[in-house]
């Protein structure tokens, strides 16, 4: 089919967004064993910070972008301080519920402030795109793919090759042991929240020119990113990224060849099938045993 290359390009770009958010997600699971249901709202917040800084205050695009990401790290720390820290010793369920509460709170605060009308944010480049063969390359889609690839590579380097990365890994594997080894566990966890919020915020800023900035921007991305995590393998970094790409491609192809109205259902059907057939996910290790 002549449509296929175009659809694949779209699928990969949309998948990049899911992957980027999923990455922030998986880091929190690994460092603090937290399942953050407000991850999608991180994207929303990033985009609205950008609206304030760029459209509101009229800062140059690059400066606004950097500032927005910095603000997101601060936001991430505040988020952790309110929704996670008071509940850290009470198990997973209260934290999950508290992040759900946070996602409702954030979305509706924005709704009350900005109303339901979407806002406009420009992309990184002025041109809308160009044709390669018969595939139209949207410039924003391209920048999303490129930035995702670069960030994933950077993160791999940081995690595997630097001391900070190793400390983070140690924290995720055994918090008590890490503390005994003199690793500042608390700082590590808050740091992960900050980084995760920055990643999510960046994803929001990148997707803003495509989807426009509205309250709903976070919800669907967040849920799909979560699905990406489970399909790829819970807590697995390569799994989260591949899961994101897989969902992006499957739902785009599914919409084109099966059904447009059920487009958003494909990710969840896939999710349930994966859980039934291969609960550890495509890239996951066996579900960890603990006693």
């Amino acid at each position: 089919m002549s449509m296929l290359p175009q659809l694949l390009f779209t699928g990969v770009s949309i998948g990049s967004i899911y992957a980027l958010v999923a990455l922030g997600f998986v880091l929190l699971i690994r460092s603090a064993n937290i399942v953050n249901f407000a991850q999608g709202e991180f994207s929303m917040m990033g985009a609205y910070f950008m609206v304030i800084l760029f459209a509101g205050l009229g800062l140059p695009y690059a400066l606004a972008l950097v500032l927005a990401v910095v603000l997101m790290t601060v936001f991430g720390v505040a988020f952790a301080w309110i929704t996670y820290w008071p509940l850290r010793d009470r198990g997973q369920v209260p934290v999950i519920i508290s992040t759900i509460g946070a996602s409702i709170l954030l979305a509706n605060l924005i709704l009350a402030t900005y109303g339901p009308s979407p806002q406009v944010l420009p992309g990184l480049f002025d041109g809308t795109g160009f044709l390669v063969g018969n595939v139209f390359m949207d410039s924003q889609y391209l920048s999303i793919i490129v930035i995702t690839v670069v960030l994933v590579a950077l993160q791999y380097l940081v995690f595997e090759k630097t001391m900070v990365g190793k400390k983070l890994q140690a924290t995720s594997q055994d918090r008590e042991m890490a503390a005994l080894l003199g690793i500042p566990v608390v700082a590590m966890i808050f740091g992960t929240f900050a980084y995760s919020a920055a990643l999510g915020g960046l994803a929001g800023i990148l997707v803003a020119p495509i989807l426009y900035v509205s309250v709903g921007i976070g919800a669907m991305i967040g849920v799909k990113a979560f699905a990406a995590n489970i399909i790829g393998g819970f807590g697995s970094i390569p799994g989260a990224i591949c899961g994101g790409f897989i969902i992006g491609i499957v739902e785009t192809l599914g919409a084109a060849y099966i059904s447009v109205p059920y487009k958003d259902a494909f990710a969840f059907v896939m999710l349930i099938v994966v859980l039934l057939v291969r609960p550890q996910g495509l890239f996951g290790e066996r579900i960890a045993e603990k006693a």
């Binding site: 659809l7 669907m220 109205p261």
Partner: peptide
Amino acid sequence: VQGFNNGQADLTPVVLAVRQ
């Protein structure tokens, strides 16, 4: 005749169908 859910980030499949 093609329906789609509100709030989609991407309508490539719909637009390609229109073109075709």
